[in-house]
């Protein structure tokens, strides 16, 4: 009996010492990806404390519910994630392990970007032989500036629900962000006029929203099926495609393995462009504005070289 009592005293002591150190004023936000962390920073500024579960160099589909993430989810007032099954392998588990009511499905603290906008590439029928595919649609929504603005508006509403005393503050931040963003869209679209009708070979469907917005056509995908690495047979077929229709660029994200893309670029002499994909994807993409600026600069640089 004595032994048991001694063993019990450890967790009880930990409980008491932890309870003594509580009291946080800022809205604690756990973003699943850096783009939503950046958006939450734009809208919440110094009233929020934001952490991203992944970096631009990690594939958000291949993450585990590791200890540091459980600890962050435990304390979060809000999780902002992509949804559309992108985080299906770890987010539901993380939420269950967190013991945090505020961020469970259906609660104000559970925010999925993909649920705020219509998605591209939705499917009626899905089979795993099709690869890592999402029935709900393509989840990589943040590279369409219009959808991003809609998501920003929805996230602002959510912040107002969670932190009622700062409603006006979030609204002002959104108004400022929306003005700047709309002005930026005009500028980007003016510059991107030259990109319209260009042809790209992509790696994964990460670029669908960006390319649809810019009017760039997708010739082919380096992945034989979504989520599966390029095979030599598939690459050989792609090489034939590039001989018939030379692409203007081969697009990959900085987190992706570029071996297949390098090979194709060497053989086909099409320029390989490594885009930041999200905030932090390269040194210049440090927030949402610079992410878009840098993406367009990199694409335009290839056109101007020709």
């Amino acid at each position: 009996m004595n032994k048991r009592n001694r063993l019990l005293s450890v967790p009880l002591f930990a409980l008491l010492s932890v309870m003594a150190g509580q009291g946080v004023a800022k809205v604690d936000i756990l973003a699943c990806e850096p783009e939503w962390a950046a958006l939450a920073e734009e809208l919440g500024r110094d009233r929020v404390s934001v952490v991203s579960a992944t970096t631009a160099y990690q594939d958000p589909h291949h993450i585990e519910a590791r200890p540091s993430l459980i600890a962050r989810a435990r304390n979060a007032d809000l999780v902002t994630c992509t949804g559309a099954e992108l985080e299906v392998g770890w987010l539901p588990l993380l939420l269950r392990q967190s013991g945090n009511t505020r961020i469970q499905q259906g609660k104000p603290g559970y925010f999925l970007a993909s649920e705020q906008v219509p998605l591209l590439e939705t499917l009626e029928k899905v089979d795993r032989s099709m690869g890592d595919i999402h029935a709900a649609g393509n989840p990589h929504v943040h590279l369409d500036p219009y959808r991003l603005l809609d998501i920003a508006e929805a996230l602002t509403q959510r912040l107002k629900t969670i932190d009622e005393s700062n409603r006006q503050y979030y609204q002002d931040n959104f108004d400022r962000f929306a003005d700047q963003w709309q002005a930026a869209i005009k500028e980007w679209e003016r510059k991107a006029e030259e990109l319209r009708g260009k042809k790209a070979i992509v790696q994964h469907r990460s670029w669908s929203y960006l390319l649809t917005w810019l009017g760039i056509d997708v010739l082919a995908d380096l992945e034989p099926r979504p989520g599966l690495p390029p095979t030599s047979g598939h690459l050989a077929k792609l090489l034939e495609t590039t001989e018939k229709t030379p692409p203007d660029f081969i697009l990959i994200a900085s987190y992706q393995n570029d071996r297949g893309a390098q090979w194709l670029a060497r053989r086909s002499e099409a320029p390989l462009v490594s885009l930041p994909y999200t905030v932090g994807g390269n040194e210049r993409a440090q927030d949402l504005f610079s992410l878009y600026n840098n993406t367009l600069e990199l694409l335009l640089a290839e056109i101007e070289d020709d």
Partner: peptide, 15 residues
């Protein structure tokens, strides 16, 4: 019964 402590570092206690 499991409890995750509200600390920045992860602590999970269970009985």
């Amino acid at each position: 019964l499991r409890w995750v402590a509200p600390t920045a570092w992860y602590l999970n206690l269970g009985a």
